[in-house]
Nucleic acid binder design. Structure first.
Lengths: 218, 218
DNA sequence: ACCAAAGTGCCACTGAGTGGCATGTGCGTG
DNA sequence: CACGCACATGCCACTCAGTGGCACTTTGGT
């Protein structure tokens, strides 16, 4: 019936939707970056994209969500990757890290730029941090389902899967923050996704030592 | 000058402020619990407490904040405790856990009840999760300052302090969630703060294993 | 050509949060 | 005790995020 054999030939209707969504995200990130998150009203954003405010809310549930859209796109891909990963005999933390790192390294330069822009904004406005963290929390729950269904780990009876997710998220956030700061110090260079990977792996290596970290004598 | 020798004799003006604040928190948590977070408008809450909406916003910065007030009170005490802790030759994670556990066990039964109520609400409404997480983030930054100033750990050059905080927070959140679920299964009993401590310590013990957690064969 | 469904625009509305100014109350001074 | 100062509050009008409802246009299938 409605099964076009060609991959990239989505129903024309879907194309328009994707385009509108992309317009909204791009314009929003640009305006927010230029003038600050709450100096830009939704009315203005909608006017620029030539879309009614009502339509905006059919694409995004809140003003924060459009600013954090790059995070959603990243994690959607990571989850896709994880859901086809074979449960080899390696620590989940590694499987998790591999999925994240390879997803980031597969990003286009443009997408990496948007991701950094979103991260930069998050650092400035508390409401964006809040939304981003709550978004992580939601995805943690999705990952826990995955761990239960595909990897035989039951988060109901075992606290470790839950802790593992939070550990991995802490590492991810640390790597992302470091990447963004580094990118800001070299504004001329294009964003380097391998810089993220390096930071991620370094943070993973530091995890074990964090557990026994002891105060230094003054 | 204004240094009354008596401990509990605050300036009378301050007493009133504390009382108003307490009224707002208590009434808010009660109403939110009875009818749900967004079925209660601020206008209504203010009417109950007989306070103008303008005054509400001199005590709290948002509707979410009043619902999460018990968290703020808890962490304020924990930070106070940490800021007088001597940097003995023990892992920071233990010092941190001791401060948290002893603070919780020193709570009154009433305060424990409010804390559980706030946690219960957070589980229901995304906006409250978001606010609570962002609040944790803020306190993490305060803890990092403390680590730098009192414990000689520099978060600028060493990723471990930052990771340590996130680890501790993950354990805290897990223990709190478990405590609340347990309390809900036994609604007749008064809240048991030692139950929280037990869960906290168990989760700390599980941390190390989380790092190497490996998929189970189906 | 036609129809049903999906997508959109428009309009009015609720409720959170803010600014400004007038009013009142506690607190220290003479 | 009276005065004045500073702080806390109340009131009012305003902005803006987000929602509900309905009418209109576009798209894809028949």
């Amino acid at each position: 019936m409605n099964e076009p054999a060609e991959r990239h030939a989505l129903p024309l209707r879907e194309r328009k939707k994707l385009r509108t969504r992309r317009d909204l995200v791009d314009t929003a990130l640009r305006l927010f970056t230029e003038r600050g998150f709450d100096a830009v009203t939704l009315d203005e954003l909608c006017a620029r994209v030539e879309v009614s405010k009502r339509t905006f809310f059919r694409y995004f549930t809140s003003k924060e969500e459009v600013a954090n859209a790059p995070f959603r796109e990243l994690w959607t891909k990571v989850l896709d990757e994880l859901s086809v990963t074979e449960p080899a005999d390696r620590p989940m933390l590694e499987l998790f890290g591999d999925a994240l790192v390879s997803t980031v390294e597969r990003m286009t330069v443009d997408d990496a730029g948007w991701l950094l822009a979103a991260q930069r904004l998050s650092g400035q406005h508390p409401a964006l941090v809040a939304h981003a963290l709550q978004f992580c929390e939601q995805h943690t729950l999705a990952v826990l389902d995955l761990l239960r269904d595909r990897f035989g780990l039951d988060p109901e009876r075992d606290p470790r899967p839950r802790l593992l997710c939070d550990l991995a998220l802490a590492v991810y956030r640390h790597a992302l923050a470091g990447w963004q700061e580094h990118a800001d110090r070299h504004p001329a260079d294009p964003p380097s996704t391998t810089d993220f990977s390096t930071r991620y792996r370094a943070a993973v290596a530091a995890l074990r030592d964090s557990l026994t970290l002891t105060p230094q004598p003054r």
